[in-house]
Amino acid sequence: MPAPRKADPVNQEYELKAKNLLKGELKRKGITYAQLAEKLAVIGVNETEKNLNNKISRGGFTAAFLLECFDAIGEREIRL
């Protein structure tokens, strides 16, 4: 039986990359999780500061969430 996707080392590697990508952009722009929550609310995505902290810390968020965050903070380029 294959390992669950969450336990897959390759998946974990990409979750870490996604987390670091988002955290890096937030830091570069000086945006806190509280500010991100406000900016997300403007585009119709309701997340609390605590939920954002947990979700981003885990790194297991969807590509859609990553794009919502980039849209909310006005970032139009993703540098991999």
Rank of each mutant, 00 (worst) to 15 (best):
Asn46Arg: 11
Ala72Trp: 00
Ala72Arg: 00
Glu75His: 03
Thr48Ile: 10
Gly59Asp: 03
Asn54Asp: 15
Glu49Ser: 09
Lys6Gly: 03
Asn51Val: 07
Asp8Arg: 05
Arg5Ser: 08
Leu66Gly: 10
Asn20Ile: 06
Glu75Val: 14
Val45Gly: 02
Asp71His: 09
Ala3Trp: 13
Leu36Pro: 00
Asn51Asp: 11
Pro9Cys: 04
Glu68Tyr: 13
Arg5His: 09
Lys23Glu: 15
Pro2Cys: 03
Lys29Asp: 10
Ala18Met: 13
Tyr33Arg: 04
Glu38Thr: 13
Arg5Val: 08
Cys69Val: 14
Lys50Tyr: 12
Ala34Asp: 14
Ile73Trp: 00
Glu25His: 11
Leu36Glu: 00
Lys27Cys: 05
Leu26Arg: 06
Ala72Lys: 00
Asn51Cys: 12
Ala37Asp: 09
Gly59Pro: 04
Leu40Lys: 02
Gly44Glu: 06
Gly44Cys: 10
Lys17Ala: 12
Leu66Glu: 01
Leu40Ala: 06
Glu38Ile: 09
Phe70Thr: 10
Gly59Asn: 05
Val10Cys: 12
Asn11Thr: 14
Ile78Asn: 04
Leu16Cys: 07
Thr48His: 01
Thr32Leu: 09
Asn11Ala: 13
Glu68Ile: 01
Gly74Trp: 03
Gln12Met: 12
Ser57Glu: 11
Ile78Lys: 01
Ile56Met: 09
Phe70Lys: 01
Ile43Val: 11
Ala18Tyr: 03
Gln35Cys: 02
